[in-house]
Simulated scan of single mutants.
Amino acid sequence: MNQKLSPFTILLLVTPPALWAGNAVVGRVISELIPPITLNFLRWAIALLVLLPLGYSVFRQGSGLWANRKRYAMLGLLGIGLYNTLQYIALHTSTPINVTLVGASMPVWMLVIGSLFFGSRIAGTQVAGAVLSISGVLTVLGQGQFSQLLALRFVPGDIFMIIATIVWAFYSWLLVQSTDTEAIRRNWATVLLAQVSFGVMWSGMFAAGEWTLTDAHIHWGWPLALALAYVSIGPAIIAFRCWGMGVQRVGPTTAGFFNNLTPLFAALLSSAFLGEVPHLYHAVAFALIVGGIILSSRR
């Protein structure tokens, strides 16, 4: 952990924000087609089926899964059962822009939670990097104009996203408290499947509660099917795999700064779908965010 940022590590940590930006947009688009908690359950149930042929050995006797079941149950609860559920609930009343704005507080929560619960020391460069990186996020959201920021309005869904961001910070710190056995570590799919297997159980219980307590219903069709395929493979399996490897290499604090690329990617995706050309403030924001990442990772 805490290695220098190599090109491969940067690629690992840039990939999840790009996929998560698409996840926020897709989650908002299909919010009227499927209940949020059910969406999260189906997403990870599909991911489990995809991972099963690759990492089924994790269920064999002696793999270490059951010996470390409390750790994997907690990782599954935080990273899969709670974080994604809270994000999809937030997208029912909030916009992808607001959700990514709230998610931009990730570096701050990484620093605070690491210091309070995991004995991590906060360096001055990390604080400066957090300020610089968040400035880049605000530049995107304000489209380079301070008046645009003042016009932003927050809704109850943003509160859910604040809770989700705190949950993700705890999840990321727990990732580096590794007690994985060699039988699990030797295959990336077994590491992820160990978490997903518990996460599906958590999200399944939450979904059952949703159908029991609310008037839940699903509008099946190709748009929902394609959306489920995307969120199950891209933002789930690929993003979680890359994030896990990146966090193990540089630590949760530095990795948290890469999360601030999500609003930038969201803006670029919106530009692509709407046929708009990138603006100067996109370049300025990118420079600020990258500057914050570099500054925070300095020793």
Rank of each mutant, 00 (worst) to 15 (best):
T125Q: 09
Q148V: 05
G79M: 02
R71Q: 10
D215K: 13
A227P: 00
I166Q: 01
L295C: 07
I293K: 02
G209E: 02
V137R: 05
P16Y: 00
I113Q: 01
N98K: 05
R71M: 14
A21W: 11
L13W: 03
H219S: 15
A164P: 10
A255H: 01
V102P: 03
A24L: 15
I113V: 12
Q61E: 15
I10M: 08
W243Y: 11
L101A: 10
W44S: 08
G292E: 03
P7M: 03
L78K: 09
Y72E: 06
S57Q: 15
G27R: 08
L268V: 11
L86K: 05
L52R: 06
L11K: 00
G234I: 09
N98Q: 02
I237K: 00
L116I: 10
G244P: 06
H92W: 15
I97N: 11
I80V: 04
V231F: 01
Q177E: 09
Y171Q: 00
A229I: 10
L33I: 08
D158N: 05
K4P: 08
P96C: 06
L54F: 15
V99C: 12
L48D: 02
L141S: 14
D180A: 05
M106T: 15
T262R: 07
N40R: 02
W188L: 13
W44G: 10
P35M: 10
G124R: 04
F240G: 06
Y171S: 04
C242F: 14
V14H: 04
M201W: 13
V127K: 04
G292I: 00
T254G: 05
L52T: 02
G22R: 02
L5K: 07
P53N: 09
G76Y: 01
L78C: 03
V290R: 06
V14F: 14
A21F: 05
I294G: 05
S31G: 11
N68V: 05
L82P: 08
V200M: 04
C242T: 09
A123D: 01
G199V: 06
N40C: 12
T15C: 12
V155F: 14
L288A: 11
L48R: 10
N23Y: 11
L175H: 04
V108F: 13
Q145C: 07
A208L: 13
S270V: 11
L11R: 00
S296Q: 04
P278Y: 13
G62C: 05
I159A: 15
P263C: 07
L11T: 14
F160K: 01
T9F: 09
F160D: 04
P35F: 00
A285P: 00
G55R: 03
L175F: 00
P156M: 08
T85W: 05
L13H: 00
L91K: 09
T181I: 04
E210K: 07
Q87W: 13
T38L: 12
S172F: 00
V99P: 10
L288C: 11
P223W: 01
S105C: 07
H279R: 13
W168N: 06
A216H: 04
A67P: 09
A267G: 11
R43T: 09
A67N: 06
S6Q: 06
L274A: 15
S6N: 03
G81D: 07
M1P: 08
P96N: 11
F154V: 07
T214V: 09
V137A: 12
L138M: 13
